[in-house]
Design a protein around this nucleic acid. Structure first.
Lengths: 197, 197
DNA sequence: GTCTATAGGGCGATAGAC
DNA sequence: GTCTATCGCCCTATAGAC
Protein backbone atom coordinates (compact mmCIF):
# COMPACT_ATOMS: atom_id res chain seq x y z
CA UNK A 1 0.00 0.00 0.00
CA UNK A 2 2.90 2.39 0.63
CA UNK A 3 4.48 4.01 -2.39
CA UNK A 4 7.60 6.03 -2.99
CA UNK A 5 6.96 9.51 -1.71
CA UNK A 6 8.65 12.25 -3.63
CA UNK A 7 8.65 15.09 -1.15
CA UNK A 8 10.96 16.89 1.20
CA UNK A 9 12.09 14.73 4.09
CA UNK A 10 10.85 17.11 6.74
CA UNK A 11 7.30 17.03 5.47
CA UNK A 12 4.87 14.19 5.18
CA UNK A 13 2.81 14.27 2.02
CA UNK A 14 -0.85 14.23 2.76
CA UNK A 15 -1.55 12.08 -0.27
CA UNK A 16 0.62 9.70 -2.21
CA UNK A 17 1.62 11.52 -5.39
CA UNK A 18 0.52 10.64 -8.92
CA UNK A 19 -2.97 9.45 -8.16
CA UNK A 20 -3.70 9.65 -11.89
CA UNK A 21 -0.86 7.30 -12.84
CA UNK A 22 -1.79 4.81 -10.14
CA UNK A 23 -5.40 4.84 -11.29
CA UNK A 24 -4.38 4.22 -14.91
CA UNK A 25 -2.21 1.26 -13.90
CA UNK A 26 -4.87 -0.18 -11.60
CA UNK A 27 -7.50 0.14 -14.32
CA UNK A 28 -5.42 -1.72 -16.93
CA UNK A 29 -4.53 -4.45 -14.43
CA UNK A 30 -8.11 -5.01 -13.35
CA UNK A 31 -9.52 -4.89 -16.87
CA UNK A 32 -6.95 -7.53 -17.81
CA UNK A 33 -7.58 -9.68 -14.73
CA UNK A 34 -11.35 -9.84 -14.64
CA UNK A 35 -12.56 -7.96 -17.72
CA UNK A 36 -13.74 -4.42 -18.25
CA UNK A 37 -17.38 -4.83 -17.32
CA UNK A 38 -16.73 -6.94 -14.26
CA UNK A 39 -14.55 -4.16 -12.90
CA UNK A 40 -16.16 -1.31 -11.02
CA UNK A 41 -14.70 2.14 -10.62
CA UNK A 42 -14.76 1.45 -6.87
CA UNK A 43 -12.45 -1.54 -7.49
CA UNK A 44 -10.01 0.64 -9.41
CA UNK A 45 -10.06 3.40 -6.83
CA UNK A 46 -9.50 0.93 -4.02
CA UNK A 47 -6.44 -0.58 -5.69
CA UNK A 48 -5.05 2.89 -6.35
CA UNK A 49 -5.71 3.95 -2.76
CA UNK A 50 -8.11 6.77 -3.52
CA UNK A 51 -11.87 7.20 -3.49
CA UNK A 52 -14.24 6.56 -6.34
CA UNK A 53 -14.90 10.26 -6.64
CA UNK A 54 -11.22 10.95 -7.25
CA UNK A 55 -11.27 8.61 -10.22
CA UNK A 56 -13.91 10.73 -11.89
CA UNK A 57 -11.97 13.88 -11.24
CA UNK A 58 -8.95 12.44 -13.02
CA UNK A 59 -10.80 10.75 -15.85
CA UNK A 60 -14.00 11.76 -17.56
CA UNK A 61 -15.25 8.19 -17.49
CA UNK A 62 -14.30 4.58 -16.84
CA UNK A 63 -12.87 4.08 -20.34
CA UNK A 64 -10.62 7.10 -20.38
CA UNK A 65 -8.15 5.61 -17.90
CA UNK A 66 -6.83 3.42 -20.73
CA UNK A 67 -6.14 6.33 -23.09
CA UNK A 68 -3.88 8.60 -21.12
CA UNK A 69 -1.08 8.44 -23.67
CA UNK A 70 -3.08 9.35 -26.74
CA UNK A 71 -2.57 13.08 -26.35
CA UNK A 72 1.20 12.69 -26.39
CA UNK A 73 1.04 10.71 -29.62
CA UNK A 74 -1.24 13.25 -31.24
CA UNK A 75 0.95 16.19 -30.26
CA UNK A 76 4.00 14.46 -31.68
CA UNK A 77 2.20 13.76 -34.95
CA UNK A 78 1.08 17.37 -35.32
CA UNK A 79 4.59 18.59 -34.58
CA UNK A 80 6.13 16.17 -37.07
CA UNK A 81 3.74 17.33 -39.80
CA UNK A 82 4.60 20.96 -39.09
CA UNK A 83 8.33 20.19 -39.22
CA UNK A 84 8.24 17.96 -42.30
CA UNK A 85 10.09 18.88 -45.46
CA UNK A 86 8.29 18.88 -48.79
CA UNK A 87 6.52 15.79 -50.02
CA UNK A 88 3.09 14.46 -50.86
CA UNK A 89 0.46 14.97 -48.13
CA UNK A 90 0.01 11.23 -47.67
CA UNK A 91 3.75 10.66 -47.30
CA UNK A 92 4.08 13.54 -44.87
CA UNK A 93 1.21 12.40 -42.68
CA UNK A 94 2.14 8.71 -42.69
CA UNK A 95 5.79 9.39 -41.94
CA UNK A 96 4.80 11.81 -39.16
CA UNK A 97 2.72 9.09 -37.54
CA UNK A 98 5.39 6.42 -38.08
CA UNK A 99 8.01 8.54 -36.31
CA UNK A 100 5.72 9.62 -33.49
CA UNK A 101 4.74 6.02 -32.88
CA UNK A 102 8.33 5.05 -32.07
CA UNK A 103 7.48 6.22 -28.54
CA UNK A 104 5.58 2.94 -28.29
CA UNK A 105 8.53 0.72 -29.18
CA UNK A 106 9.97 0.65 -25.69
CA UNK A 107 6.62 -0.31 -24.19
CA UNK A 108 5.52 -3.08 -26.48
CA UNK A 109 4.45 -5.52 -23.74
CA UNK A 110 2.27 -2.78 -22.24
CA UNK A 111 0.82 -1.99 -25.67
CA UNK A 112 0.08 -5.67 -26.27
CA UNK A 113 -1.76 -6.11 -22.99
CA UNK A 114 -3.69 -2.92 -23.59
CA UNK A 115 -4.62 -4.02 -27.12
CA UNK A 116 -5.84 -7.34 -25.76
CA UNK A 117 -8.02 -5.62 -23.18
CA UNK A 118 -9.50 -3.27 -25.78
CA UNK A 119 -10.13 -6.09 -28.25
CA UNK A 120 -12.24 -7.84 -25.61
CA UNK A 121 -14.74 -5.02 -25.12
CA UNK A 122 -16.89 -3.09 -27.60
CA UNK A 123 -17.15 0.12 -25.62
CA UNK A 124 -13.37 0.28 -25.30
CA UNK A 125 -13.10 -0.27 -29.05
CA UNK A 126 -15.45 2.66 -29.56
CA UNK A 127 -13.23 4.90 -27.49
CA UNK A 128 -10.13 3.74 -29.35
CA UNK A 129 -11.83 4.52 -32.65
CA UNK A 130 -12.73 7.99 -31.39
CA UNK A 131 -9.10 8.61 -30.44
CA UNK A 132 -7.97 7.50 -33.89
CA UNK A 133 -10.57 9.75 -35.52
CA UNK A 134 -9.41 12.66 -33.38
CA UNK A 135 -5.83 11.94 -34.41
CA UNK A 136 -6.99 12.02 -38.02
CA UNK A 137 -8.68 15.40 -37.75
CA UNK A 138 -5.67 16.83 -35.90
CA UNK A 139 -3.38 15.57 -38.67
CA UNK A 140 -5.72 17.04 -41.30
CA UNK A 141 -5.61 20.40 -39.51
CA UNK A 142 -1.82 20.26 -39.48
CA UNK A 143 -1.77 19.53 -43.20
CA UNK A 144 -4.12 22.44 -43.88
CA UNK A 145 -1.79 24.67 -41.88
CA UNK A 146 0.87 23.73 -44.45
CA UNK A 147 -1.43 24.86 -47.25
CA UNK A 148 -2.86 21.51 -48.26
CA UNK A 149 -6.43 22.04 -49.49
CA UNK A 150 -9.45 19.81 -48.93
CA UNK A 151 -10.39 17.13 -49.68
CA UNK A 152 -6.69 16.24 -50.02
CA UNK A 153 -5.90 17.13 -46.39
CA UNK A 154 -8.71 15.01 -44.98
CA UNK A 155 -8.07 12.08 -47.31
CA UNK A 156 -4.33 12.09 -46.67
CA UNK A 157 -4.78 12.28 -42.91
CA UNK A 158 -7.40 9.53 -42.80
CA UNK A 159 -5.30 7.36 -45.07
CA UNK A 160 -2.32 7.84 -42.80
CA UNK A 161 -4.41 6.78 -39.82
CA UNK A 162 -5.49 3.68 -41.73
CA UNK A 163 -1.91 2.66 -42.47
CA UNK A 164 -1.06 3.34 -38.83
CA UNK A 165 -3.83 1.01 -37.69
CA UNK A 166 -2.67 -1.75 -40.04
CA UNK A 167 0.98 -1.22 -39.13
CA UNK A 168 0.12 -1.21 -35.44
CA UNK A 169 -1.73 -4.51 -35.73
CA UNK A 170 1.26 -6.05 -37.46
CA UNK A 171 3.70 -4.69 -34.88
CA UNK A 172 1.55 -5.94 -31.98
CA UNK A 173 1.28 -9.43 -33.46
CA UNK A 174 4.94 -9.78 -34.41
CA UNK A 175 7.43 -11.60 -32.21
CA UNK A 176 10.00 -9.99 -29.97
CA UNK A 177 12.77 -9.78 -32.55
CA UNK A 178 10.53 -7.88 -34.96
CA UNK A 179 11.52 -4.43 -36.23
CA UNK A 180 10.05 -1.24 -34.77
CA UNK A 181 6.55 0.04 -35.33
CA UNK A 182 7.74 2.74 -37.75
CA UNK A 183 8.83 0.10 -40.24
CA UNK A 184 5.50 -1.68 -39.91
CA UNK A 185 3.67 1.55 -40.69
CA UNK A 186 5.93 2.29 -43.66
CA UNK A 187 5.34 -1.22 -45.00
CA UNK A 188 1.57 -0.71 -44.75
CA UNK A 189 1.89 2.55 -46.68
CA UNK A 190 3.89 0.82 -49.40
CA UNK A 191 1.22 -1.88 -49.67
CA UNK A 192 -1.51 0.70 -49.97
CA UNK A 193 0.34 2.59 -52.68
CA UNK A 194 0.75 -0.52 -54.79
CA UNK A 195 -2.96 -1.23 -54.27
CA UNK A 196 -4.14 2.15 -55.56
CA UNK A 197 -1.59 2.41 -58.37
CA UNK B 1 -50.88 9.90 -30.35
CA UNK B 2 -52.86 7.71 -32.78
CA UNK B 3 -50.94 6.16 -35.65
CA UNK B 4 -52.00 4.42 -38.81
CA UNK B 5 -52.87 0.89 -37.88
CA UNK B 6 -52.13 -1.71 -40.48
CA UNK B 7 -54.24 -4.65 -39.39
CA UNK B 8 -57.34 -6.50 -40.41
CA UNK B 9 -60.49 -4.46 -40.01
CA UNK B 10 -62.23 -7.06 -37.90
CA UNK B 11 -59.56 -7.05 -35.26
CA UNK B 12 -58.34 -4.32 -33.00
CA UNK B 13 -54.59 -4.36 -32.63
CA UNK B 14 -53.62 -4.87 -29.01
CA UNK B 15 -50.60 -2.66 -29.49
CA UNK B 16 -49.86 -0.12 -32.16
CA UNK B 17 -47.56 -1.92 -34.58
CA UNK B 18 -43.92 -1.09 -35.26
CA UNK B 19 -42.88 -0.09 -31.77
CA UNK B 20 -39.29 -0.28 -32.92
CA UNK B 21 -39.84 2.20 -35.74
CA UNK B 22 -41.73 4.61 -33.50
CA UNK B 23 -38.98 4.43 -30.89
CA UNK B 24 -36.32 5.18 -33.50
CA UNK B 25 -38.27 8.19 -34.78
CA UNK B 26 -38.98 9.45 -31.27
CA UNK B 27 -35.32 9.12 -30.32
CA UNK B 28 -34.09 11.09 -33.33
CA UNK B 29 -36.69 13.80 -32.76
CA UNK B 30 -35.89 14.20 -29.09
CA UNK B 31 -32.14 14.12 -29.60
CA UNK B 32 -32.60 16.87 -32.18
CA UNK B 33 -34.98 18.91 -30.04
CA UNK B 34 -33.20 18.92 -26.71
CA UNK B 35 -29.90 17.12 -27.22
CA UNK B 36 -28.86 13.53 -26.63
CA UNK B 37 -27.88 13.80 -22.99
CA UNK B 38 -30.89 15.82 -21.97
CA UNK B 39 -33.13 13.10 -23.33
CA UNK B 40 -33.93 10.12 -21.12
CA UNK B 41 -35.00 6.72 -22.33
CA UNK B 42 -38.24 7.32 -20.42
CA UNK B 43 -38.86 10.41 -22.60
CA UNK B 44 -38.37 8.38 -25.77
CA UNK B 45 -40.59 5.54 -24.58
CA UNK B 46 -43.33 7.97 -23.59
CA UNK B 47 -43.36 9.66 -26.99
CA UNK B 48 -43.46 6.27 -28.70
CA UNK B 49 -46.28 5.14 -26.40
CA UNK B 50 -44.45 2.20 -24.86
CA UNK B 51 -42.68 1.53 -21.59
CA UNK B 52 -39.04 2.12 -20.86
CA UNK B 53 -38.54 -1.64 -20.72
CA UNK B 54 -39.75 -2.01 -24.28
CA UNK B 55 -37.06 0.38 -25.48
CA UNK B 56 -34.34 -1.83 -24.05
CA UNK B 57 -35.90 -4.92 -25.57
CA UNK B 58 -35.72 -3.29 -29.00
CA UNK B 59 -32.34 -1.61 -28.67
CA UNK B 60 -29.26 -2.67 -26.75
CA UNK B 61 -28.69 0.86 -25.47
CA UNK B 62 -29.75 4.47 -25.81
CA UNK B 63 -27.44 5.12 -28.77
CA UNK B 64 -28.47 2.17 -30.86
CA UNK B 65 -31.87 3.68 -31.74
CA UNK B 66 -30.08 5.98 -34.19
CA UNK B 67 -28.33 3.16 -36.06
CA UNK B 68 -31.15 0.94 -37.15
CA UNK B 69 -30.30 1.23 -40.84
CA UNK B 70 -26.63 0.33 -40.64
CA UNK B 71 -27.20 -3.41 -41.01
CA UNK B 72 -29.03 -2.93 -44.30
CA UNK B 73 -26.18 -0.86 -45.67
CA UNK B 74 -23.60 -3.42 -44.58
CA UNK B 75 -25.50 -6.33 -46.09
CA UNK B 76 -25.80 -4.48 -49.39
CA UNK B 77 -22.08 -3.72 -49.42
CA UNK B 78 -21.14 -7.34 -48.76
CA UNK B 79 -23.52 -8.50 -51.48
CA UNK B 80 -22.14 -5.97 -53.96
CA UNK B 81 -18.58 -7.11 -53.30
CA UNK B 82 -19.55 -10.73 -53.83
CA UNK B 83 -21.31 -9.84 -57.08
CA UNK B 84 -18.62 -7.53 -58.46
CA UNK B 85 -16.79 -8.30 -61.68
CA UNK B 86 -13.01 -8.24 -61.74
CA UNK B 87 -11.09 -5.17 -60.70
CA UNK B 88 -8.68 -3.90 -58.10
CA UNK B 89 -9.73 -4.55 -54.48
CA UNK B 90 -9.99 -0.84 -53.72
CA UNK B 91 -12.17 -0.20 -56.77
CA UNK B 92 -14.40 -3.15 -55.96
CA UNK B 93 -14.89 -2.14 -52.34
CA UNK B 94 -15.39 1.57 -53.02
CA UNK B 95 -17.86 0.93 -55.85
CA UNK B 96 -19.72 -1.58 -53.69
CA UNK B 97 -20.16 1.04 -50.98
CA UNK B 98 -21.05 3.77 -53.47
CA UNK B 99 -23.85 1.68 -54.94
CA UNK B 100 -25.14 0.44 -51.60
CA UNK B 101 -25.24 4.01 -50.32
CA UNK B 102 -27.74 5.03 -52.99
CA UNK B 103 -30.37 3.74 -50.56
CA UNK B 104 -29.70 6.97 -48.66
CA UNK B 105 -30.41 9.29 -51.59
CA UNK B 106 -34.14 9.32 -51.10
CA UNK B 107 -33.80 10.14 -47.40
CA UNK B 108 -31.29 12.94 -47.50
CA UNK B 109 -33.16 15.30 -45.11
CA UNK B 110 -33.34 12.47 -42.58
CA UNK B 111 -29.64 11.73 -43.05
CA UNK B 112 -28.78 15.39 -42.58
CA UNK B 113 -30.71 15.70 -39.34
CA UNK B 114 -29.21 12.48 -38.08
CA UNK B 115 -25.70 13.64 -38.97
CA UNK B 116 -26.30 16.90 -37.12
CA UNK B 117 -27.43 15.04 -34.01
CA UNK B 118 -24.42 12.73 -34.11
CA UNK B 119 -21.99 15.60 -34.67
CA UNK B 120 -23.27 17.22 -31.47
CA UNK B 121 -22.43 14.33 -29.15
CA UNK B 122 -19.20 12.42 -28.60
CA UNK B 123 -20.74 9.15 -27.51
CA UNK B 124 -22.90 9.07 -30.64
CA UNK B 125 -19.79 9.71 -32.71
CA UNK B 126 -18.14 6.74 -31.04
CA UNK B 127 -21.04 4.50 -32.01
CA UNK B 128 -20.97 5.81 -35.58
CA UNK B 129 -17.24 5.08 -35.77
CA UNK B 130 -17.84 1.55 -34.50
CA UNK B 131 -20.47 1.00 -37.19
CA UNK B 132 -18.04 2.23 -39.85
CA UNK B 133 -15.30 -0.02 -38.48
CA UNK B 134 -17.69 -2.97 -38.53
CA UNK B 135 -18.59 -2.12 -42.11
CA UNK B 136 -14.88 -2.10 -42.90
CA UNK B 137 -14.22 -5.53 -41.42
CA UNK B 138 -17.29 -6.96 -43.18
CA UNK B 139 -16.04 -5.54 -46.48
CA UNK B 140 -12.58 -6.98 -45.82
CA UNK B 141 -14.13 -10.40 -45.14
CA UNK B 142 -16.04 -10.17 -48.42
CA UNK B 143 -12.85 -9.32 -50.29
CA UNK B 144 -11.05 -12.25 -48.69
CA UNK B 145 -13.90 -14.49 -49.82
CA UNK B 146 -13.01 -13.39 -53.34
CA UNK B 147 -9.42 -14.49 -52.78
CA UNK B 148 -7.86 -11.14 -51.91
CA UNK B 149 -5.03 -11.69 -49.45
CA UNK B 150 -4.04 -9.58 -46.45
CA UNK B 151 -2.96 -6.89 -45.90
CA UNK B 152 -4.54 -5.92 -49.24
CA UNK B 153 -8.05 -6.91 -48.17
CA UNK B 154 -7.92 -4.90 -44.95
CA UNK B 155 -6.26 -1.88 -46.56
CA UNK B 156 -8.67 -1.84 -49.50
CA UNK B 157 -11.72 -2.14 -47.25
CA UNK B 158 -10.55 0.53 -44.83
CA UNK B 159 -9.67 2.82 -47.71
CA UNK B 160 -13.12 2.32 -49.19
CA UNK B 161 -14.68 3.26 -45.85
CA UNK B 162 -12.53 6.38 -45.76
CA UNK B 163 -13.68 7.52 -49.20
CA UNK B 164 -17.25 6.72 -48.15
CA UNK B 165 -16.89 8.97 -45.10
CA UNK B 166 -15.48 11.81 -47.18
CA UNK B 167 -18.07 11.33 -49.92
CA UNK B 168 -20.84 11.19 -47.33
CA UNK B 169 -19.70 14.48 -45.77
CA UNK B 170 -19.72 16.12 -49.17
CA UNK B 171 -23.15 14.77 -50.03
CA UNK B 172 -24.60 15.88 -46.68
CA UNK B 173 -23.24 19.39 -47.07
CA UNK B 174 -24.25 19.86 -50.71
CA UNK B 175 -27.42 21.70 -51.72
CA UNK B 176 -30.62 20.09 -52.93
CA UNK B 177 -29.72 20.02 -56.62
CA UNK B 178 -26.51 18.12 -55.91
CA UNK B 179 -25.85 14.71 -57.50
CA UNK B 180 -26.36 11.48 -55.60
CA UNK B 181 -24.11 10.10 -52.90
CA UNK B 182 -22.57 7.51 -55.22
CA UNK B 183 -20.98 10.26 -57.32
CA UNK B 184 -19.65 11.95 -54.20
CA UNK B 185 -18.01 8.69 -53.11
CA UNK B 186 -16.54 8.11 -56.58
CA UNK B 187 -15.16 11.63 -56.61
CA UNK B 188 -13.49 11.03 -53.24
CA UNK B 189 -11.92 7.84 -54.58
CA UNK B 190 -10.59 9.70 -57.61
CA UNK B 191 -9.08 12.36 -55.34
CA UNK B 192 -7.41 9.73 -53.21
CA UNK B 193 -5.93 7.98 -56.23
CA UNK B 194 -4.38 11.16 -57.52
CA UNK B 195 -3.00 11.76 -54.02
CA UNK B 196 -1.23 8.41 -53.76
CA UNK B 197 -0.06 8.29 -57.36
C1' DG C 1 -42.81 -5.71 -15.35
C1' DT C 2 -40.00 -4.99 -10.99
C1' DC C 3 -35.63 -4.44 -8.70
C1' DT C 4 -31.02 -3.09 -8.29
C1' DA C 5 -26.08 -2.16 -9.17
C1' DT C 6 -23.23 1.12 -11.24
C1' DA C 7 -21.94 5.21 -13.99
C1' DG C 8 -21.26 9.65 -13.54
C1' DG C 9 -22.53 14.61 -12.28
C1' DG C 10 -23.19 18.49 -8.47
C1' DC C 11 -21.74 20.64 -4.48
C1' DG C 12 -19.51 21.86 -0.26
C1' DA C 13 -15.80 20.87 3.12
C1' DT C 14 -10.97 19.98 3.98
C1' DA C 15 -6.17 20.56 3.78
C1' DG C 16 -2.14 20.65 1.62
C1' DA C 17 1.30 23.78 -1.68
C1' DC C 18 2.68 28.38 -2.90
C1' DG D 1 -4.44 35.06 1.29
C1' DT D 2 -5.02 31.85 -3.59
C1' DC D 3 -4.91 27.53 -6.01
C1' DT D 4 -5.58 22.82 -6.38
C1' DA D 5 -6.37 17.98 -5.12
C1' DT D 6 -8.89 15.23 -2.23
C1' DC D 7 -13.07 13.41 0.29
C1' DG D 8 -17.94 12.45 1.22
C1' DC D 9 -22.50 12.38 0.43
C1' DC D 10 -26.16 13.87 -2.47
C1' DC D 11 -28.64 12.62 -6.77
C1' DT D 12 -30.47 10.62 -11.45
C1' DA D 13 -30.45 7.51 -15.39
C1' DT D 14 -28.65 3.58 -17.69
C1' DA D 15 -28.78 -1.06 -18.32
C1' DG D 16 -28.58 -5.68 -16.58
C1' DA D 17 -30.71 -9.21 -13.46
C1' DC D 18 -34.55 -11.52 -11.85
Amino acid sequence: MSATVISRLDSVARWEPDARGRLAVAALELYAERGYDRTTVADIAERAGVTERTFFRQFADKREALFDGSNALQNAVVQNIADASDGSPVDIAAEAIARAATMLDERRPYAQLRAQVIAANASLQERELLKMATLGTAAADALRARGVADPAATLAAETAVTVFKVGFEHWIAADLAAPGIADSVRAALASLKSLTA
